[in-house]
Each structure stands twice: as structure tokens, then as C-alpha cells.
Design a protein around this nucleic acid. Sequence first.
DNA 1: TTGTAGGCGTTATCAA
DNA 2: TTGATAACGCCTACAA
Lengths: 338, 338
Amino acid sequence: MGVTIKDIAKRAGVSVTTVSRALNGYKDIRPETRERILRIAEELNYRPNAVARSLVMKKSQTIGLIISELTRSRTGHDLTFNIICGVNDRATEAGYDLVLSTTDPSRQEQVPYMELCRRRQLDGVILMGMRTDDPYLKEVVESSVPCVLIDVPLVGDKCGHVTLDNERGARMAVEHLIAEGHREIGMINGHAQAFVSLERLNGYRNALKEAGIEYRPEKVYFGDFEEASGREGIRHLLSRFPEMTAVFCASDTMAIGAIRELKDLGRRVPEDISVMGFDDIELASFVTPALSTVSQPVYEFGRKAVDLLIRMFDGEIGTAEVLEPKLEIRESTAPPAL
Amino acid sequence: MGVTIKDIAKRAGVSVTTVSRALNGYKDIRPETRERILRIAEELNYRPNAVARSLVMKKSQTIGLIISELTRSRTGHDLTFNIICGVNDRATEAGYDLVLSTTDPSRQEQVPYMELCRRRQLDGVILMGMRTDDPYLKEVVESSVPCVLIDVPLVGDKCGHVTLDNERGARMAVEHLIAEGHREIGMINGHAQAFVSLERLNGYRNALKEAGIEYRPEKVYFGDFEEASGREGIRHLLSRFPEMTAVFCASDTMAIGAIRELKDLGRRVPEDISVMGFDDIELASFVTPALSTVSQPVYEFGRKAVDLLIRMFDGEIGTAEVLEPKLEIRESTAPPAL
DNA sequence: TTGTAGGCGTTATCAA
DNA sequence: TTGATAACGCCTACAA
């Protein structure tokens, strides 16, 4: 079907070796023959067969993007999508193809991600959406194929990660609330199986501490990043701490849930209570009131992940890429009423 | 590095042929040897090398998902993402890997998508985001690799598509407006290079016609699906037809733009003017007022696309899969004021 | 500067 | 029921 170097060789009256050399830009070849071969390749509209090449080179020029529970959670959509874009753009620029794959906790047991790597001879892998209790995690670190984790702070010889300075982001958010005069600040956190939850909690605590405000664990509700848990969280917190004037949420989705619940409860945002989100998803600026939040450069996450991976291909060891958050103050936060 | 059938053969004291047969479930093999081989494969943690297999089988068990301008337009994100999910889920179920690829109009010239197909020996391709004037279109139809187009109504021997009944969707939307009592209805359409724009325009015209309302081309503004053009569109229309009491937009994003512009103009939605969207993106139910719109089963688009592709692998010819829209009435539409 | 030969891991065609 | 042997398309010593 397709044109092969054999066809070119025949037509050019040389051996396949020579064709291969010419095509791959080797210099031990007479300029004339080289020209001729290139011309013929052009004429025949030759395209190298990446599959055959991969087989012999043991490199596929392909990186895998493995996403845990792609479809499942509604929350991550915006984030996930932008990371995909970043990964895709950078990979394309660098001449790599991208294979997309997903795992469910259930499916993971049976078909570990390493299988994909070996099966397709992936040069490297980017993983996102993994929980701290994910059975894959150890497999990843021990693995011999270079991998980059998103939001999982592991570093190894051939394993790096890119993440946000989540502690700092959370701290900035709470500091802002404090600067506006709040002192009774609750937190609706993500689930404890996400690294970012822990880090954001630290940021919350540190901000309180610096301001001389006592940290009380009961003021932190653990949700699951989704809207419903934002609603539950705010009700839970409010029933116990009616004096609360502000709440910091570990995701915009939960913040939106909280705002909606507050509306149902007849409380005004931000007049009665300020709500701060995290992520800066597209929705954040469209809801009413527009959400104050912490913005993460997610598209950049994707690009950096590919960069890091490629550097590991070139022999570097894994590193941690920590990107900076940015505070995005909109309408859902304000000084507390007197 | 990896375990190959050769290793298994050696260990089992048989030839690679036998191993291959055993592994692939051929039946002309003695049960004992078969068991033994399987056991050894298990012990050695053997994984077939898909690359080698692809080379000889001339099939890669891989389908390509090619998206035009993935990053570029903000509009399609939600739609695009859900289609990706659908494609991914169905492909995984069916045992296909997915390679993601994007094209820019600029890049398209140099690296036609066919190259990817040949390079990676893709079994088939799903294309989305293509415009009617896309130079690729003819390449696609002429191509020998099976392909499925999203929202481009082409059918061929090895080419099918999945789309929405856009005419019907638009008609339903406008009929609803008419049923509520509107007679002065404008339209903010997408750009003319999208097939869906044409079909939605037809739906708008047909609904008017059936209701005995004169169709006037000047009442249709051609935008580009993005928010800004929704703002422009509504201003343009309103300046010419101040009597307008409702507007039908060919995308939610434009509808949201229109609503925002109306707010800036001091007009209330839906009291002063009703706004109907199209797509039912996530945002639609979160904005204020919540958007009345036409919902498309995008996730299903993705799944159907893969289904269709696989059927073509099995010898069927390309067909058209037309899915049904659903009206989603929320708060942005209401009967006109007297 | 060029060609020969071998191999990458699999499957497939024939014999045996 | 099994095993040589030859592909698949490409790359790379090694030889010429």
C-alpha cells in the first residue's frame, strides 16, 4: 500500500541502506545520490513508517497521557481540559505524538498503566488525577519509563512532577480574607486522598497562625471537590460556627456549591459571608457573584510536564516543577459586616 | 528489556510459532502445551508488543482523534471535552488506543492529517472542528482510511459522520419562543463556515414560516460562536430592530455574551427580551439568569463516532448518525411583555 | 561512498 | 499438533 524505502531504493537504483541514510541526514553519502533520493521520496510522497521505526529503535516518539477517572468527576473538567491542551501543544511542537488513556480505580487492578507503556513502547508518561492511596503510585515510581506526575509530589530518578505551590496559594487566599478583616474563617477542603488538600490545609493554617488566629480543626470540613460537598460543607460549618464570616474552599466547584446553598439559606454573599474558591475555572468568573479565587496556570502545567519529560529522555533526573498561584479577587469576598 | 515470545518459547521448549498460537487462542494446539505456555507467560509477566504486532498485521488497534484548533477557540471547550470523553470511553471498551492530534489551519498545509494516519498506521480517524472551507475536507473523503466526521455532513464509502439534527433543534427553540408569544425574533448565528450554522438557520426560518411570520435576512447576524460576537450581535440587531422581543443564538457562549451586553444596556432578561442559546454547555445552567437552550448529547457523539468507525472496520459503508436535540427551558426566556 | 546482512517482536504460510 | 521460514519496514554494524 504505502511507499517504503524499498520502493525508493529500487527507483533510485541504490540499496535501502543508502536510502535510509539519505533520509536520515547522514553525511557519508554523495550529495548527488542524496539529492536524487530525496527527490524521489518527494515524488513518491514517501512517509516513514513510525511503527517499523519504533520497533527497531525501541523508541516510539510517543508519550502517554494517563488520566485517572477522566469522565467520572465533573469537577476537574476545566482543569483537565486545559492540561490536555498544554500537553498536546508542547508534545506536538517537540515532535511527539500523544496517546490518551484513562484508568478507573476498578480497571486499574486488572490493567496496570505499565502495560500500556510496554505495549505501545511509550517513551514516557504523564499521569494526572491520582490519589495518594492509588495502588499505581508505587508502580509508577519503581517503573523504568520516565514519568511526570501532575499534583503528586514524588521525585525519583526517572520520575518528576509539576504542581502548584498549593500552600502558598491557600495562604494568599486566607491572608486576603484576614486583610479584609475576617477572623472567623472556615475551610471546606477536598478529600484527604489528594495531595493538594493537605497542602492547601497547611496554607490555611499558616495564614491563621501568622495572623495570631487560633486554628481549630473543627472548622475544616472535608468534602470531595464537588459541588454537593460544598453545599454540605457550608451547612455543616455554619450550624457549628454561626459566627463564621468567611469560608475558604479548596475548589471553585465547592465554592459555587457553598454560594448556592447560602442563597437557599437566605444568606447573602459577600455581605453576610465571604466565599473564596480555588482553581479559577472558567465558571468562576461567570457565576453571580463572580468568584474570588486562586488561579493556577493549568495550561502551563501541561507544557511543563512535557518539557520535564523530554529532559528526562535526555538523561536528566526527575525534578519538581512548582508553579506560582495568583490571587483573583472578584465579587464573592468583601470585608465582614460590623 | 521486555519479555518476548522468544523467551517464552525457550523456556517452554517449543517454537515461537507455537507460543504465538497459544497466546492468540488458536485451537490447533495440545491443551497441555497451551496451558504450559500460558502459565509461563504469566510467570514471566509477558506483555505482547503492540508495535511489532502492528507492523505485521498492518493494523494498529489505534484510532486517531483529530481536533481542529483545540486550544484556539474558547467556545468549544465543554463540547470538545465531552466528545473526547465519549470517544475515549468507547474506544477503551472496544480495545482501541487513542491518539490525540490537533491541527491548525496554518499547520494543516504542511502536515496533512493523512500523514499521521500513515505514519502511525491508524486504523481509523475521527475528525472534529472542521470548517466547510477546510482544505482537508477533500483529502478526508478521498482518503482510504475510514473516518468519521463530527458535525460535517459527508458520507462516503469509508466516511461517515455523527451530528445533531440541528435544523430540528433550532426549530424547537424558535417554536418555543413563538409559543410563548414572541413574533419579533432575531437570530445570532455562528459563522457561515460551519455546517451547523446553516442548519440552525434553516430551523429558524422554518419555525418562522410555519408560524406565518415573515423571514427577514437582516434579522440574522453572523457571529463566530464566541462571546464577543454575541455582544456585537445583540447590539447590531437591537439598533436595527428595537421591536425585537427575543433572540435565538446559535451557541450558548454567544447567548451569554448577548445577555451580558443587554445587562450593560440596561435591558432585563427575560422581562425585556428573551434569549435562547444552543449547546447546553455547563455554564448555561450556572449563569444568571440560567440559560434556556438546546441540549446536544455530546458525550454520545463521541461514543457513536467510535461505534461507526468500528462498523466501517468491519466492512460497512459510511452512514450518517443524526442525534436528537432536547429543549432545556430555564430562566432566560419568557413571554414578551405586553 | 555504498551495499550486505542481521535483527527488532510478531504473525502467517507451509511443511512435517 | 508443531516447527522452520519468511515476511512487515526500518535501522545499523560491518564489509567492500
